[in-house]
């Protein structure tokens, strides 16, 4: 409220964030050993591999690098990856919000079953996930005959890849939103209803603004996984070059053909995507934290 109050709370926040309380922390050598171990681990398993991707990609010069990326098969793999993500991410955004909404705001029978089902893709190996679709929609599968009769191809075609991607990335948005929405409770929504808002108005004006950062965070993770998925997509794709190969699959094929430079070139695109995702994720986290603090301190 008053100026002094604000300064005090700002100071306290600063204090909490920056200073270390000597009474609750370990002695110096323990701290430095732990930090050193962490850094060593990170370099060995993260920074070095990441650097390798880019050095290998450019080993034969920029010309080879860009040639590998502009190869028609590479372009079609990029295109297919984007198509799968563009379909899977919005669908999982809608499913995720709907599921999180139902779970966080309502009590109903079978709720814990629904939560388990949402987690299923995390629990099941992606290869199994892909196999499920082959068993259902494949030539010898349950609907195989019917699909062939109607000239409708799912397995070894784009629909199968999209389906597998949706399955694998299903939990991301919902998992991100459920704890957030549960913590926020439903009083604000109730207040909106009492004030005369329709369900739709309540969602757009009250619910969505409250979950926007969490939602964006979930979408970013969902997108990263959708573009990077290998196992499930590998099973349903059939590896038809220029037709059903996504970027990760394309990398594998090139690698198996000893075409390392091209393999790493495409891999570097995926690595870039990962870096971009991390940057976006950090920005979102920082932005939502900033929102919270600004509102408190302004």
């Amino acid at each position: 409220m008053s100026a002094t109050n604000t300064h005090l709370s700002q100071y306290q926040k600063y204090n909490q964030r920056v200073s270390r309380n000597r009474a609750t922390s370990e002695v110096a050598w323990v701290r430095y050993t732990l930090i050193a171990a962490t850094l060593l681990f990170l370099s060995l398993f993260l920074f070095v591999p990441l650097a390798t991707v880019f050095t290998e990609a450019f080993r034969k010069g920029a010309g080879t690098y860009f040639a590998a990326l502009s190869d028609p098969d590479a372009l079609s793999a990029i295109k297919l990856t984007l198509i799968a993500a563009v379909i899977a991410v919005p669908l999982n955004l809608v499913f995720g919000v709907a599921a999180a909404w139902a779970i966080a705001k309502f009590e109903f029978k079978g709720k814990s079953l629904l939560i388990t089902l949402i987690d299923l893709p995390f629990a099941v190996s992606p290869v199994i996930a892909g196999l499920i679709y082959v068993l259902i929609f494949g030539m010898q599968g349950w609907f195989g005959e019917w699909l062939t009769d109607h000239d409708f191809k799912i397995i070894f075609a784009i629909p199968g890849i999209v389906l597998a991607t949706i399955f694998v990335t299903f939990p991301f948005v919902a998992r991100e939103l459920i704890p957030l929405m549960q913590a926020q409770g439903k009083e604000e929504e109730e207040a909106a209803l009492v004030l005369g808002a329709s369900g739709w108005q309540m969602f757009w004006r009250v619910t969505l603004p409250n979950i926007k950062w969490g939602l964006l965070y979930g979408v970013i993770l969902c997108n990263a996984r959708a573009m990077g998925e290998f196992g499930a997509v590998s099973v349903v794709s059939g590896h038809i070059r220029g037709l059903t190969n996504t970027m990760p699959l394309h990398v594998e094929i090139l690698y198996n053909e000893y075409n390392y430079a091209a393999a790493f070139a495409v891999a570097s695109l995926l690595a870039l995507l990962a870096l971009l995702t991390l940057a976006l994720k950090t920005y979102v986290e920082w932005q939502s934290a900033k929102d919270a603090i600004e509102i408190e301190q302004e």
Partner: peptide
């Protein structure tokens, strides 16, 4: 329906729209 009852409701924890 709630929205047609024309009631004003004040919640224990205010339930102001925080954004």
């Amino acid at each position: 329906a709630v929205r047609e009852r024309q009631v004003g409701f004040v919640f224990q924890h205010y339930a102001l729209f925080r954004h």
